[in-house]
Design a protein around this nucleic acid. Sequence first.
DNA 1: CGTATCTATTGACAAATGTCAATCGAACTG
DNA 2: CAGTTCGATTGACATTTGTCAATAGATACG
Lengths: 117, 117
Amino acid sequence: MSSELTLTPKQKSPNGQPCCEPVVYPDVDRAEAERMAKIAKALGDPIRLTLVDVLRKHAGKVCVCELVPLFDVSQSTLSHHLKKLRDAGIVDSERQGLWAYYYVNPEELEELSAWLS
Amino acid sequence: MSSELTLTPKQKSPNGQPCCEPVVYPDVDRAEAERMAKIAKALGDPIRLTLVDVLRKHAGKVCVCELVPLFDVSQSTLSHHLKKLRDAGIVDSERQGLWAYYYVNPEELEELSAWLS
DNA sequence: CGTATCTATTGACAAATGTCAATCGAACTG
DNA sequence: CAGTTCGATTGACATTTGTCAATAGATACG
């Protein structure tokens, strides 16, 4: 039907060419888009994306003290990035004595991953 | 080997507990992380994510005049979002007379999608 | 030519972001 | 108790972001 071809405007414009009642609509609703954009935004920094990569590949809980030396930023900056990932629901953490351990919450990435494929 | 279990620090710290030579490393290198973060960042806004959704689902080229009425923002704001998607390489556009037509460049989304699954 | 239409660009501005140094709080050591 | 260590928080600052109104550029019409 409309697939595979250029979608041309449908209403007439003064120059005689057709324009402009939309015939195309999003499949995602506003709430879905906001949830997924939030996840994508959290992944939208190289440090945070790499953090998630490390945590995902390891499949266990990783001590913050292992993460800090992997990056050229201060400890407070890394803590800030970890907080952003927590706020987005992508990772969770738990405290054990002095140490904090982080791990991926796979469900949050799932929705974006599904949409993307 | 190390999978499935909490990764505990390896060096001794003064309190007798082990800490802190990293045993865990990213699988993605810096350049990869930066490319993917750039894509993710571009998707990190509900309007842009919805734009990509519309363009992907339609599988053809869509006139900007179809896109503008789908959102509650001004034409210049939408144009700005489209430019961000272009700059990230996620979409491309071509001009035909007065109209501009946008379409998804699937390759850019592919890398992020692959990493995510 | 002059006018209308579509899209991109510019300028402005408040809000959010990424970063660091400094500090704080909790928990452990001796 | 006093001192140390890990990680989070705070405050500061420059940069980026999302938004709009206004304008510019290109193209088409008459």
